[in-house]
Design a protein around this nucleic acid. Structure first.
Length: 272
DNA sequence: CGCATTTCCTGGTAGC
DNA sequence: TGCTACCAGGAAATGC
């Protein structure tokens, strides 16, 4: 999404920014400060888009798609939240549709992420060179926290959501409930490599369209057909032929192959 | 502080 | 057919 947006938005000036059917509150705040400002860059950190703005006061537009957010160059059928008109030789408009309103479209002082605690505490981006096996190992904490909730927290690595957490754990043969701090160095290295590989492959295929996600031009991503376990409960594991099962870990739907990803040792089990 | 739990939100769908 | 109940999960808010 960032790669599509950058050449289109960089250097352009906002002619108007309208909130459309978006409730008051921090998720769609500061849009009145966009008019007349130039978009200097389109950056990404994890799942957040950061668009620094021209002007005496250093501010940036933060966009997060949430679950159902879609940016498009053409007006959506419904659930439009923001309409951003851009100046230029060919004036154009960026639309933000967000059915469930989990997304975000906010102007904040540059680098001031007090209203975005996850962004403030974001780990290194999964596809940036700063994300290394060594650094990853050092960010896994000392508690018994399970590895999957830690991945979803964005604290150890930025950019891994529910789908890619399940896929990366499957690739590295790790059960999502294993204690993050008790992974071996070899396991951490495998998981690191799996995260990078899964995300690179998905980006190459324009992402995973479950229902809503579309590219700027309205195309679906095709990584869905490459998923090994996510959403495939009852189907065969492509690696061992075992049956994929769905469980709940940290209140989130989670998919594993029990044969490839053995559950961590429970403290005790009734005999017999 | 750190982790766990609850909340927000709406379309789709299962079940009757 | 039409109604109700429930599920999906990003990150923030709240609880302990």
């Amino acid at each position: 999404m960032r790669r599509e947006l950058a050449p289109w938005l960089c250097g352009r000036t906002v002619a108007s920014a309208e909130r459309v059917d978006a409730p008051p509150g921090p998720k769609y705040a500061g849009l009145d400060r966009l008019r007349g400002r130039r978009i200097e860059a389109v950056r990404r950190r994890g799942k957040f888009l950061l668009l620094p703005l021209s002007g005496a006061v250093a501010e940036e537009l933060i966009v997060h798609l949430g679950m159902t957010g879609v940016l498009s160059a053409n007006p959506p059928a419904g659930h439009l939240r923001v309409r951003l008109r851009l100046d230029g030789p060919e004036p154009s408009t960026l639309y933000f549709r967000d059915v469930r309103r989990f997304g975000r479209f906010t102007v904040v002082p540059a680098g001031d992420y007090r209203s975005l605690p996850t962004l403030a505490a974001l780990g290194p981006d999964a596809l940036a060179p700063e994300f290394t096996p060594e650094g990853f190992a050092g960010s896994l904490g000392r508690s018994g926290m399970a590895i999957k909730p830690l991945l979803l927290s964005q604290r150890a690595v930025a950019g891994v959501g529910n789908i890619y957490a399940d896929e990366a754990l499957w690739r590295s043969r790790l059960h999502p409930e294993r204690s993050a701090s008790r992974l071996t160095k070899r396991q951490v290295t495998a998981l690191h490599a799996a995260i990078v590989a899964v995300l690179e492959e998905s980006v190459a295929l324009q992402g995973t369209t479950l229902h809503d996600y579309r590219t700027l031009g309205g195309r679906s991503g095709s990584f869905l057909e490459r998923l090994a376990v996510y959403g495939r409960a009852g189907e065969s594991c492509p690696r061992c032929g075992g049956t994929v099962v769905r469980l709940v870990v940290g209140q989130r739907g989670t998919h594993v192959c029990p044969r490839c990803q053995p559950a961590p040792q429970r403290r005790s089990r009734p005999p017999g």
